[in-house]
């Protein structure tokens, strides 16, 4: 069966280049959009940080931390409805792009990709976690997610008689590198500080500064360093299955060549080794689609939206992307040389 012309064109296209531009555009929207009177929404599934002056929206994590800073009783009142509404808004945005929010839109993710570009420019090699560390460190994002839910609850309620000090309000924002680093892009250095109000604030703000430093160093040596620990990623994964945008794998077509694993920025092994699961979006995945680009087997990896195929792996596309020219162009370029060579023999 012949593929449709448009389908073939898309499957042969270089999505990474497209992604690069989309990331630049979304970075500008989510860091400077506010200055151009762009308002999107709060409760977005990305780090659209409200601490950035020009942010046109808000990150769902700051919203959920604020909302949960309330008592059990009021959660049962209409305040609870508010919590559900904002979860609804989050999901409304999320289901359209699934984890592609991370790979295409999130400004902090984009920033890490830029740092990777810088590293490549300087010619430093990257590092990867070995299998054990990967498995061990994987759970950190879930721990952070649970903490960022429990700590705000603990401020207004008591857990077995323990009250969390008020200085721990929005605990994740206090340690989030987006709060410190993204405002720098608008020339706002006010987030670089240690708050000496009390011990809690000293600890939290120092942690924030440390994590910001680790973020920069870490993403220089490891691709998408922070995303591996991001609680937003954990939260998204919980709802990933209901999303309209899906990545599926046809295990029968897989040769387990490992191309997809090699290009994976977060280092997901299952993408190459799992030949049973159909839905291959894992918790660390950010749907950057690099694996689909690197897959040389026709229709082995597929991106679809609401059942409609968008971007499929294809041989032709693979060779075009990885060798930079089509076959006929290549043959044309080497043929004259070879003929001369053969004649001279």
């Amino acid at each position: 069966m012949r593929k449709l012309k448009i389908k073939r064109y898309i499957d042969n296209s270089n999505v990474s280049r497209f992604r690069f531009w989309i990331q630049i555009i979304s970075f500008f929207i989510f860091v400077y959009g506010g200055y151009f009177f762009i308002e999107i929404a709060s409760r977005l599934p990305i780090f659209s940080c409200p601490y950035v002056q020009g942010s046109p929206g808000g990150c769902y994590l700051i919203g959920v931390q604020h909302e949960l800073n309330t008592t059990w009783e009021s959660m049962l009142s209409f305040r609870g409805l508010g919590i559900l509404t904002s979860l609804g808004i989050f999901l409304l945005f999320f289901i359209f792009l699934n984890k592609a929010w991370c790979g295409f839109v999130c400004p902090l993710g984009t920033l890490q990709d830029w740092i990777t570009k810088l590293r490549k420019f300087l010619g430093f090699s990257f590092t990867r976690y070995d299998e054990m560390s990967f498995k061990r460190l994987k759970s950190i994002k879930y721990i952070l997610l649970v903490l960022l839910i429990l700590i705000p609850l603990g401020i207004r309620n008591s857990f077995f008689g323990i009250h969390v000090p008020h200085g721990m309000h929005t605990p994740f924002c206090q340690i989030c590198p987006a709060r410190i680093i993204l405002p720098l892009f608008t020339g706002d250095t006010s987030q670089i500080f240690i708050d000496f109000t009390d011990t809690t604030t000293i600890i939290m703000t120092s942690l924030g500064m440390m994590i910001a430093a680790l973020f920069l160093v870490g993403s220089f040596v490891k691709k998408r360093f922070f995303c591996f620990f991001c609680p937003m990623s954990a939260l998204q994964y919980i709802f990933s299955k209901i999303s309209l945008l899906r990545m599926t794998k046809d295990g029968d077509k897989c040769t387990r060549c490992g191309n997809c694993y090699r290009v994976c920025d977060v280092g997901i092994r299952e993408i190459a080794d799992d030949i049973i699961s159909k839905n291959i979006v894992k918790d660390d995945c950010m749907l950057c689609v690099k694996c689909v680009e690197a897959c040389p087997e026709d229709d082995c990896l597929k991106i679809s939206f609401a059942g409609m195929p968008i971007f499929n792996a294809s041989q032709e596309g693979f060779f075009k992307r990885y060798t930079g020219s089509s076959l006929t162009e290549y043959i044309k370029s080497i043929e004259p040389n070879k003929e001369n060579e053969n004649e001279s023999k």
Binding site: K120, S125, C257, N259, R262, V263, K290, P296, F319, Y322
Partner: peptide
């Protein structure tokens, strides 16, 4: 089988 490279180093 093919070779896929992420960073051409």
């Amino acid at each position: 089988d093919t070779v896929a490279v992420d960073e051409w180093f």
